[in-house]
């Protein structure tokens, strides 16, 4: 991330003395805030075992037979006889080394279970993020340029419908129309190989994207309408710049700033929505794993997935902040107060 700073194209400040270093300082400061935040999250996740009703040892055993011998093994394995903070310290050092404990079902390492399921969720989230940003910004732009027309209203209505119906409802609707009635897409399963998987994940990704797209459409539309009326856009037209140049360097770039601000929210919304959508489409992803683990009271797995999701949210927000400063140099110089 730090290395990426000096290569942001011709318009960002790069070679100005102090420009690059102030970005480094900025990222460092954000990281400094992120680490204690991650620690707090890990502490909360660890405390789950102890917050859950009943004896932690039997919680960790789950549905398995709890004879005294097994309980003793569990107590020793999870250091349950140590003081609470010592337990946390030992657990944390394991987590940092990449050991999230052993799942109650199947007695597999949580990390390998997660690794198995991660692929589907990542592809699903990436696909729907691309759809949300791509289609959302496109529709928002079309609505802005055709502001006040029927097309504009149709787009806004579509967005409102999308955000009003939860992802699993949209999912079932899409499944019925495109899977059952039209047979265009498979109705369940993750598919094999990249193309097949993309084909299988298209409907879920659309279901997921529709539920958050309204945010992007609305923000893009409002921002673009505002940008189109700006003096500098009129001045750019007065100077005879091509409409492509005006659209990309002036209207799009400037209206993306609020979209980037909301991007953290959008990505997090997508990942959270993925949990439902994976269940709706019977996809073996992290979301389905989490739901399954919760139903089976599989505490190590819950800990693992929760930790992963939380770390992801924190890192996405960090990334958004950095991108934000790259897109809008005014932030770096502290000139935007509002």
């Amino acid at each position: 991330m730090l290395g990426a700073a000096p290569s942001t194209g011709s318009t960002a400040i790069t070679d100005r003395p102090g420009g690059g270093s102030s970005l480094v300082v900025f990222v460092m400061r954000r990281l400094a805030v992120t680490i204690p935040l991650l620690l707090m999250i890990s502490f909360g996740v660890f405390a789950l075992v102890h917050i859950a009703p009943g004896d932690p040892a039997s919680s960790l055993l789950g549905a398995r037979a709890s004879d005294p011998a097994t309980l003793a093994v569990v107590r020793a394995r999870y250091h349950l006889d140590d003081p609470f903070l010592v337990q946390y310290g030992k657990w944390l050092s394991q987590v940092i080394r990449g050991d999230l404990g052993v799942s109650i079902q199947g007695n597999r390492a949580v990390t390998s279970t997660i690794a198995d399921r991660l692929g589907v969720t990542i592809i699903l989230s990436l696909m729907s993020t691309t759809l949300v940003l791509g289609i959302g910004i496109l529709l928002g732009a079309v609505a802005a340029f055709r502001c006040g027309t029927r097309l504009d209203r149709a787009i806004v209505i579509f967005g409102v419908f999308g955000i009003s119906s939860p992802a699993f409802v949209t999912g079932i609707f899409l499944l019925y129309v495109f899977g059952v009635l039209l047979h265009w897409f498979p109705v369940f399963g993750p598919g094999e190989g990249i193309l097949d998987r993309a084909w299988h994940l298209t409907l879920p990704a659309f279901a997921l994207a529709t539920s958050v797209m309204a945010i992007v459409i609305k923000i893009t539309r409002a921002a673009m309408i505002e940008e189109l009326a700006r003096d500098y856009v009129t001045f750019a037209r007065a100077r005879g710049l091509s409409s492509r140049r005006i659209f990309f360097a002036y209207v799009l770039r400037n209206s993306l700033i609020p979209v980037v601000t909301a991007a953290g929210l959008i990505v997090v919304g997508i990942v959270a929505g993925a949990i439902y959508v994976e269940v709706t489409f019977s996809l073996p992803g992290l979301g389905a794993l989490t739901i399954d683990a919760i139903q089976k009271r599989d505490i190590p797995t819950i800990q693992g997935t929760t930790l992963l999701f939380s770390a992801f949210v924190v890192l996405v927000n960090l990334a958004v902040d950095v991108i934000y400063t790259l897109v809008d140099p005014r932030i770096r110089f502290g000139r935007v107060e509002s």
């Binding site: 318009t11 400040i13 500098y232 001045f235 360097a249 897109v327």
Partner: peptide, 9 residues
């Protein structure tokens, strides 16, 4: 102040 693109040098 509003005639120049705020994101462009």
């Amino acid at each position: 102040f509003t005639m120049l693109n705020p994101l462009m040098r």
